[in-house]
Design a protein around this nucleic acid. Sequence first.
DNA 1: GCTTGACTTAAAGTGCGCTTGAACCGGTAC
DNA 2: GTACCGGTTCAAGCGCACTTTAAGTCAAGC
Lengths: 150, 150
Amino acid sequence: MPDLTISRVAKQFGLRASALRYYEQIGVLPATYRRGGQRLYDESAVRRLAIVQRARELGFTIKETQILFSDFSCGPPISERWHSLCGAKLEELEIRIDQIHEMQHMLQKMMQCRCAAFDQCGAGILEGKRKRSREREQAAVSENSADGEA
Amino acid sequence: MPDLTISRVAKQFGLRASALRYYEQIGVLPATYRRGGQRLYDESAVRRLAIVQRARELGFTIKETQILFSDFSCGPPISERWHSLCGAKLEELEIRIDQIHEMQHMLQKMMQCRCAAFDQCGAGILEGKRKRSREREQAAVSENSADGEA
DNA sequence: GCTTGACTTAAAGTGCGCTTGAACCGGTAC
DNA sequence: GTACCGGTTCAAGCGCACTTTAAGTCAAGC
C-alpha cells in the first residue's frame, strides 16, 4: 500500500516536492495513487524515481529520461528507435569514462603545478579530439565509397 | 603568432563564436590577442579552450570551471580553497564512474526486459544511496562524539 | 464550527548558459 | 566610393529544469 507523502519522498531524494509534481506533469514519473487528492507513493514509485534521478545526475536530459525510462511499454521488444537510443547512450557512457579518467589525471597534475597541467593535458585532450575527428572522416569516406559501390 | 579567427576556433570545437565571446566575458577564457579589434587565437588558447570544454562536458558548472581553470595564479602552491575544490572534484569523478557502470549495466538489462531492469536496478541504486547515507550518518555521529571528547 | 498545516492546481518567475538582434567597424573587391 | 564580409559591443531573448506564488482543498485537533 502506498503510504509515503510527497514531502517524505522528496526529502529522501534531496528534492523539492515541486520537482516530483513537475516530473509527473511532464511524464517522467507516472501519475501516482491519490487519497483525497493527495499523492501517495510506494516502494516501486521510489525505485522509479531513483532511476530518474540517477539519469539526471549523469547528464541525461529530461527528454532522454522521458524516452528511455517512461513506461509506455513494458516487456522485451521495444521500438527500434528506443533500442538505438539505448545503444547510443551506452557508447556515450563509455566515452564519458575515458574523459573522466583524463580529467582525474589532469586534476592530480594541477594540484602540483597548474601550468604544466594546462599545457600537457590541454594538448592531450586536443590530440584525442583530433584523432577522433580524423577517424570519423575516414569512416565517412569509406562509407561514401561503399555507397558509390552499391 | 596567433592567427586563428574566432569563427575558425569555434568551428573546430563545434561551438558558436558567441560562446567564445561569452567565455571571455565571464573570465573562463582570458582576454586574447587582438588585431584591429578582432580576436586572434593561438595554439595555447586552443588548449585552454579544450580543457574548458571538457570540464563542461563532464558537468562542471561555469563557476567551477572558472575557479578550477582560470589563470589567476600559475605555479604550484595555490590557495587552500582551490586545493580542496580540486580534491572534492576528484572524489566526485570517482563516484561518477561507479554510477556510469551501474547505468551501463541497467541499459544493457533494459535492452532485454524493461520491467526487470526497472525493478532490479532501481532497487540497486536505492540500496547504494541508503548505504551511503548510513555511512554519512555514522561519520557524523563519530565526529560529534569526537567533538564531545575534545 | 474553526483553525492549522500539509497538500492541491495553474501560472508566473528564476538562474544558468548561452544566442540573437541592432548598430557599428575594418579590410578587401569591384 | 561603395558593397560586402566577417568581425565588434551591448542588451535583450531563449530553452531547460525546475521553483515560487496565489488561491483553494482536505483531514485532524480543539
